[in-house]
Design a protein around this nucleic acid. Structure first.
Lengths: 148, 148
DNA sequence: TTGCCCTATGAATAAATATTCAATTCAGTG
DNA sequence: CACTGAATTGAATATTTATTCATAGGGCAA
């Protein structure tokens, strides 16, 4: 399973080449040793927000340079757009300007899972008391920030 | 021959509605009294530079953002003073008051290397999607924030 | 371990979009 | 008035992209 690496490679390829369609991109991916089906590439492109548009008579695959698009991922609270994590921390994406409120709310719950929170404008960083608690923390967040 | 009027109408429709594909756009065009073939609409879309991309799980036709990211890149470059990291995160030092702009710029690139960013006044904290990506993330930052 | 669920994937297929080709219109010209 | 060429269009078709459906593997709880 190297989906992540593959999407990185896609990014790299599109930054260095002018690619007109997914078929060509697929070739370049294969040239670089990553052999996947067209269906998979289509899904990758969708996930990465890649678009195809015509300029100067030629088509080109490109990333959006558009700032406003937010990725709403789960059934989480109205202000919360997504919850992500890596090995050491959890990130909550919120509506613009709402991160502080969400962070405060979580602080006030005084969960033993949470060591601390830092809020920016639309992002809350959660540091867990232990990295082992991250899965539990994520379900805790979903539970406490869910819409219903 | 009302190609021009039609393209204007297309613009108007896309500004007021969320349209997921050309077929739906065609319907809306017809509802407003302009009856053309799918082929014609396809050509109009190409000429107008309209793109289709997936956000929040749905497709959407949209105009390109005239917000040229290469210009922003130049501006962002001169705001960045240094890039540092430890085992779990990356810190970018910026000119006073400029961290938010730099963070937003990085967010908008939607790199799969970046889990999230939090900006203070002159510091951006970057959380990588995986700690293994930190070296790649650092070179990615240098690449995307370089002055030249 | 076993069973269950969730994610990622490919093959086949469906859906969406682009292009080809022939036809039409219209402006300009002899 | 014919004729020519360029622009626009629709129908049919080709190409490109997305989704469905089945499967395989990984993580996790019992």
């Amino acid at each position: 399973m190297n989906k992540h690496a593959r999407q990185l490679k896609i990014r790299e390829i599109l930054q260095q080449n002018s690619v007109g369609n997914q078929h060509d991109l697929l070739q370049l991916l294969r040239d670089s040793g990553m052999n996947v089906a067209q269906a998979t590439l289509s899904r990758d492109c969708a996930e990465l927000g890649i678009m195809r548009s015509k300029t100067d008579g030629n088509y080109r695959l490109r990333f959006p340079d558009d700032n406003a698009s937010s990725i709403i991922q789960g059934l989480v609270g109205i202000e919360v757009l997504a919850v992500h994590s890596n090995e050491t921390a959890v990130i909550i994406k919120t509506l613009p300007g709402r991160a502080h409120g969400v962070g405060s709310y979580l602080d006030q719950l005084r969960s033993p899972l949470i060591l601390g929170t830092i809020a920016g404008d639309d992002t809350v960083l959660l540091i867990p008391t232990s990295v082992e608690n991250i899965p539990a923390l994520i379900s805790y967040i979903h539970k406490n920030l869910s819409k219903n």
